[in-house]
Amino acid sequence: MALKVGRGAAAPPFLVMDVIAAANARAAALPPGAPGVIRMEVGQPGTGAPRGAAEAAIRALQVGAPMGYTEAFGLASLRARIAGHYAAKYGVAVPASRIAVTVGASGAFPLAFLAAFDVGDRVAMAAPFYPPYANILTALGMVPQLLPCDASTRFQPTIAMLEKLDPLPAGLIVASPCNPAGTMLAPEELRGIADWCGRNGVRLVSDEIYHGLSYGSVAESTAAAFSDSAIVVNSFSKYFSMTGWRIGWLVLPEDLVRPVECLAQNMFISAPHVAQVAAEAAFDCTEELEANKARYARARAALLAGLPAAGFDRIAQADGAFYLWCDIGHLTNDSLDFCARMLEGAGIAATPGVDFERDRGARFLRFSYCGPEADMMAAPGRLREWLGR
């Protein structure tokens, strides 16, 4: 008799992880002295944790600190530091009691979704989108509702799109800067969306993990400034360059504080203690982190200047994060195959657009430019040679 397989077993793959594996295999197969693989597939900074963060962890281990469980919502000192960050950066008073330290942003999403939504609830989001939004919702029995966006709206949702939804969704996820397009909502746009959600009983979930990484004229703003009912997700992975430390946070509305705490107690107990110590120290590493950002800005400028000559001349307005979302419909209608051939022929790993949108994504790919600066500078030349430009 066949055994039952749960709903979660049907979750689609996060394709970028498959690309990582393929790029690793390609790099391992290269002969000695051959040019290496340029890694542009994953949003992982080429820099590690800032020195001050690593040193704080080392000191804690050297003195023999127990590093046991913390409270489910994290160290009180770290939560206070995050609250201070909102006051200093955004001028927003967020009490530490509404902040939950999580196992990365990836651990924050299921906590937020389970607390805010029920099985069968529809949650809207712009398409293209960060794949785990939809995959986690689906695994939890919720229904992603996609809002097809394009360059005309800078790949961001609009109130006009939301007003056409009938019936209204239970929730809306926004991301600014967003993944994969790197575009941002201006403060007045985020405020308008937050107000619309408040008037219509739609729970707003604002993904702000790329805050700190913006390059254009659009100012960063937090949904916490515009709504007391919104859920804000952030992380130490991107601006703070601490991907493997697995530390994120939630800013919660009052009605979800205890529900999320109970879920966190049961699902995760707490985020890693030593990583929380390092994260708290990372707030004192601004000079190093801003130097990292300057590297990304130089790589971004070089790619925006060099990619068009290689044939990648249809690029989304890249306000922030560290991604370029390229329309390659004039080169292929199969981005999965194109990225596989690009890895083999040019030695460049990129993420096919189908990871971010199954249908229209076949004509897009995403380049990440947070890797080693020299690699980013070399990428356009490799692509020109491969495509015979």
Rank of each mutant, 00 (worst) to 15 (best):
H273S: 14
L263C: 06
T286F: 14
E288F: 01
I269F: 10
A281N: 07
I269V: 15
L289P: 05
R295P: 11
E288W: 01
A279Y: 04
A301M: 08
A302K: 02
T286R: 15
A291Q: 13
Y296E: 12
T286I: 15
E290I: 09
A271E: 00
M267C: 11
Y296C: 13
A291H: 10
T286W: 14
D284K: 01
A279S: 09
V277A: 06
Y296F: 15
L289H: 06
H273W: 14
V277C: 02
P272H: 08
A294G: 10
A291I: 07
I269C: 14
F283S: 04
A271D: 01
E280R: 05
Q276G: 01
A299K: 05
E280G: 07
L263I: 07
A294K: 11
A299R: 01
C285T: 05
E287Y: 10
R300W: 05
R295I: 13
L263M: 03
A299H: 02
Q276F: 00
A264N: 03
R295S: 13
A279V: 05
Y296Q: 12
D284C: 03
F268Q: 09
E287W: 10
Q265H: 12
A281G: 04
L289D: 02
R295F: 14
D284V: 04
A297P: 04
E288Y: 06
N292S: 11
A281V: 06
A275G: 15
H273V: 13
A264E: 08
A279P: 02
V277D: 00
C285H: 02
V274R: 15
E290Y: 11
C285W: 00
Q265I: 10
A279E: 02
H273D: 15
D284W: 04
R298Y: 07
E288G: 00
C285Q: 06
A275M: 12
R300S: 03
A294R: 12
A279K: 00
V274M: 15
A294P: 08
A299L: 04
S270R: 06
R300M: 03
S270T: 01
A275D: 15
L289C: 00
A301D: 07
L263P: 07
A294M: 11
Q265C: 14
R300G: 00
Q276K: 04
M267T: 10
A302L: 07
D284Y: 03
